[in-house]
């Protein structure tokens, strides 16, 4: 299966994920990608919007039909692929902040938003959405996020070669999605941990559906959950956000 063999390119859309979902529902073949120059209602998580300036960022979604219903590793697959593609293109190693942020020196470079639909326990389709800040200058970011955001252009001091980056991205996505399809979750987890902003033993505060919880980070579970030791007990979290990391070099 080759991701990026077919690309649907549009100038503008509400959200590439919604377009990809419509394609999936109409039976589009697996691996087809939707790319838009801008998103007018780009989605973040929890119904938040994703700032999607025209021609500044990369906004794309991939149509997938996962062969097994446990698809919790897909956000990690997407993060790994973007990190590899950026490294191949620019020699810059970006980090991954569990579960779905792409960061560089603590600043946000992009994010992953995957969506899927199940009929009962059967997965109908999944769309893998990637947003990456490409050629934003500082002034292109809204003032309120300026100190927390970064683009590839701001990092490398030159205009990124989007075509080369995309070529590398299709290759990396095909590779990591292939690992997922073939049940090589352990390889995905270990590669993810290599470039995670967290390293085992760090003190982490999570914002979870049960409230804020602090503890010691112990790694990523086989299903992609974050393992936290708190009060002498290890627990795996699947729905949470990292609120704070204490003493992490990669994060600062």
């Amino acid at each position: 299966m080759e991701i990026g063999a077919k690309i649907v390119q549009v100038k503008s859309c509400l959200s590439t994920n919604d377009m990809a979902k419509d394609l999936a529902l109409s039976g589009e073949k697996e691996g087809t990608v939707v790319i838009s120059e801008e998103q007018t209602q780009g989605k973040g998580t929890k119904g938040r919007s994703w700032y999607s300036a025209r021609k500044k960022g990369l906004y794309l979604s991939v149509v997938l039909y996962p062969p097994h219903p446990d698809i919790s590793l897909l956000p990690l697959v997407a993060g790994l692929a973007v990190s590899d593609a950026v490294f191949s293109s620019l020699g810059i190693r970006i980090s991954l902040k569990w579960p779905n942020d792409l960061v560089w020196k603590g600043k946000k470079l992009g994010g992953i938003l995957c969506e899927s639909a199940y009929s009962g326990n059967r997965v109908n389709y999944a769309v893998l959405g990637i947003g990456l800040n490409l050629s934003h200058g500082m002034d292109d970011f809204p003032e309120e996020i300026r100190d927390q955001a970064v683009s590839l252009k701001l990092i490398s001091k030159e205009e990124p070669d989007e075509k080369a980056l995309l070529g590398n991205l299709w290759q990396a996505l095909s590779h990591w999605y292939g690992e997922f399809v073939h049940g090589k979750g352990d390889r995905i987890i270990s590669a993810y941990q290599e470039i995670s902003v967290l390293s085992p033993g760090k003190k982490v505060t999570l914002d979870t559906d049960r409230g804020e919880i602090s503890g010691i980070y112990r790694g990523i579970s086989p299903q992609g959950g974050l393992i936290l030791e708190s009060g002498g007990e290890e627990k795996t979290y699947f729905s949470a956000e990292i609120k704070a990391v204490k003493g992490s070099k990669k994060e600062g």
Partner: peptide, 13 residues
Amino acid sequence: IEAMKLMNEIESE
């Protein structure tokens, strides 16, 4: 159902 910021819509069969 959200897990790892993956939004899964559960449909009726």
